[in-house]
Design a protein around this nucleic acid. Structure first.
Length: 638
RNA sequence: GCUCGCAUAGCUCAGGCGGUAGAGCACUUCAUUGGUAAUGAAGAGGUCCUCGGUUCAACUCCGAGUGUGAGCACCA
């Protein structure tokens, strides 16, 4: 006689063991229709799971986050079934849920085409109409291997063979299709309301580049047609914000064949770049960093000493000149140590914070490049803090505070933190790793924010914190980092004189807030959809005449604003005012200042904001005050 | 780097059984001096990414290369 407690606290008693679906039915037919799965005592189960003891139960529908996952996972099965109906020779592999959807990887003799996707989608619809019941079964490992061998599914056999132990495995069947799966799944193929196959691309079997390539079909599935539509609109919006598109449209930068992965910055893009750099320079000065600059070309031997050549030789550009080999620097750290090494350092000099807007070049794999987001030539807001072990924690904590403040100034409020710890291949003793990981953990805990542990992902010389921000589209972008390094200073002979006059090796903290200017500006462009806030906008205001009678007045007004340090220009072309407004609105200029006879007479300008708001007539002083206030509205908290 | 697409005017894109191309916007000139998202007219603008092959003939078909897009792999 199971007693079921529902999320609202109410309880229901049943004579015999009941399934989740039966409970739903006993509550109401609407709920039964919507029920996809259940959560029994916190565990996600199928709707046909039998409950025989007292339990807490939540009926999962498409409104639950978990319900959506069930739909998507089941939709992957639905797609696999459709693919095998159309292409019986296609072999199934895996089909997990991902953000906003799912995919399934198939082994097939050729690539699927967009026409194939349409056909697959059609068969999926047919299977939905067939309303096949989804059934779960359990098999031993050996039985399962035999079954899939008979079906000729060699990848499934491999997957099952790689599952350790000889525990029983669960399988889900719908009609003729059966797949190894943990579940849970929807009750029947009629449960799908809205799905769409979005793309097809290659993907390596087991994520290993030395394996063969499979065909991955991506799809998305939602609880309702409306949600699917909203999702597709979100994709469209993201496409509109694409920094590559906006970069061209707003004349910010370009790329060309002769310099793959290296941006040509145009005046307006470079203006944004300079504003970001000016700001970072100010922040670094305020926070006791000493800015330096180091060579682009450094003899190869330094990279051999630092250990980078042996690991990254293929990704470094090199130059030969007069029988010497140089590498174009792929990073700044070895150079910063050279600066540290000049002159004798005392413990009194620590912590020493060196910063550089360091231009780096890396031969990134051709397929990995993506607009400004991943380039071969970039500038890091790099910094290295030389300190003692005791100083690590405070330095890391200060860095985190600085980073939050900078992100906030750029309009990013949410930061996601991850700690990557010792990888298999590493230098340094376990004791040193213990210590450095602990100091990073302490610093993370001190932020009061949640953070995620990523074991084994640290750099070979030390653990690192990775800081990602969330843009207004909800996308996570990794930008900042701070890494503890106990070994590179030693390799390159960095030392300081301690209190007891012994020579000691300093600890080095590698850190960057933005990561690279290129990437960060790409993120900014997409975050603001090109509507840069006034403090970053390449042109803050534009003065427009109505007729050429006002030209002199416009030029004088421009001059006055320029003298106050604003980025202003004029458009005195012989065009109608509506035409000019449209053109400059599309160029996303924050303020348009219109001057006609009225304004000349009153000594004002008519101010129009980017959104179209008419702020009325203002004098020079009034407009300066407005623009100053707008520019200062980012908090300058760093 | 791998798989599959794509590459035509400054931009966004059409196009064509294989017979060297077109629109809109932008640009130039002329007229127009007009008050908050497009004034009108005329004109100019292309080695159809590169190199090979097939062909009487290639922008079109085939191959290679380069760049680029989606995804995978990589990311000090």
């Amino acid at each position: 006689m199971p007693k079921i407690t529902l999320p609202d606290g109410s309880t229901r008693e049943y004579e015999n063991p009941v399934t989740v679906m039966e409970v739903a039915e006993s509550i109401g037919p609407g709920l039964a229709k919507a029920a996809l799965a259940g959560r029994v005592d916190g565990e996600l189960v199928d709707s046909f799971t039998l409950i025989s003891t007292d339990a807490d139960l939540a009926i999962i529908t498409e409104r639950d986050r978990d319900g959506l996952e069930v739909i998507r996972h089941s939709c992957a099965h639905l797609m696999a079934q459709a693919v095998q109906r159309l292409f019986p020779k296609a072999q199934v592999t895996i089909g997990p849920v991902v953000e906003d959807g799912f995919f399934y990887d198939f082994a097939f003799s050729r690539a699927f085409t967009p026409e194939d996707l349409q056909a697959i989608e059609k068969v999926m619809e047919e299977i939905v109409k067939e309303n096949l019941t989804v059934q779960r079964s359990v098999m031993s490992r050996d039985e399962a291997i035999t079954m899939f061998k008979e079906m000729g599914e060699v990848y499934k056999v491999q997957i099952i063979e790689s599952i350790p132990g000889d525990e029983d495995l669960s399988f889900y069947r719908q009609g003729e299709f059966i797949d190894l799966c943990r579940g849970p799944h929807v009750p029947a193929t009629s449960s799908f309301k809205a799905f769409k196959l979005t793309s097809v691309a290659g993907a390596y079997w087991r994520g290993d580049a030395s394996n063969e390539m499979l065909q991955r079909i991506h799809g998305t599935a939602w609880g309702s047609k409306k949600d699917l539509k909203l999702f597709l609109q979100r994709l469209e919006e993201a496409e509109k914000r694409d920094h590559r598109k906006l970069g061209k449209h707003l004349d910010l930068f370009h790329f060309q064949e002769e310099a793959p992965g290296m941006a040509f910055w145009h005046p307006k893009g470079w203006s944004i770049y300079q504003s970001v750099q000016r700001y970072m320079r100010e922040v670094q000065d305020k926070n006791d960093y000493k800015e330096i600059n180091t060579p682009q070309l450094v003899d190869y031997s330094l990279w051999e000493k630092s250990g980078h050549a042996s690991k990254f030789a293929d990704e470094m550009f090199s130059v030969e000149s007069e029988n010497r080999m140089y590498a174009i620097k792929p990073m700044n750290c070895p150079c910063h140590i050279q600066v540290f090494n000049q002159g004798l350092k005392s413990y009194r000099d620590l912590p020493l914070r060196l910063a550089e807007f360091g231009s780096c070049h890396r031969y990134e794999p051709s397929g990995s490049m993506h607009g400004l987001m991943r380039v071969r030539s970039f500038v890091q807001d790099d910094g290295h803090i030389f300190c003692t072990e005791e100083q690590i924690q405070a330095e890391v904590a200060d860095f985190m505070t600085l980073l939050f403040a900078v992100y906030k100034d750029f309009g990013f409020d949410e930061v996601i933190l991850r700690l990557s710890t010792r990888p298999e291949k590493r230098v340094g003793s376990d004791e040193v790793w213990d210590k450095s990981e602990q100091s990073l953990k302490d610093a993370l805990n001190a932020t009061g924010l949640p953070w995620e542990l990523v074991p084994g992902e640290g750099a070979f010389y030390g653990p690192k914190i990775e800081c990602s921000l969330k843009d207004c589209m909800g996308r996570v972008q990794q930008c900042g980092t701070i890494q503890v390094d106990f070994s590179t200073p030693g390799r390159l002979g960095a030392q300081y004189v301690a209190e007891d006059s012994s020579k000691q090796e300093p600890v080095m903290l590698h850190r960057a807030v933005l990561g690279s200017f290129e990437r960060f500006i790409g993120i900014l462009i997409e975050h603001y959809a090109g509507d840069m806030p006034a403090w970053l906008a390449p042109e803050q205001a534009l003065i427009l005449n109505i007729t050429d009678k006002q030209n002199d007045y416009c030029r004088k007004f421009e001059e006055s604003l320029k003298n106050k340090g604003f980025r202003v220009s004029t458009d005195l072309r012989n065009e109608k005012i509506g035409f000019k407004i449209r053109e400059h609105t599309l160029q996303k200029i924050p303020y348009l200042l219109v001057v006609g006879d009225k304004e000349v007479e009153n000594g004002t300008v008519a101010v129009r904001k980017r959104g179209g708001d008419d702020l009325g007539a203002m004098t020079l002083d009034e407009f300066c005050a407005l623009l100053n206030q707008d520019v200062a509205s980012f908090s300058r908290s760093a």
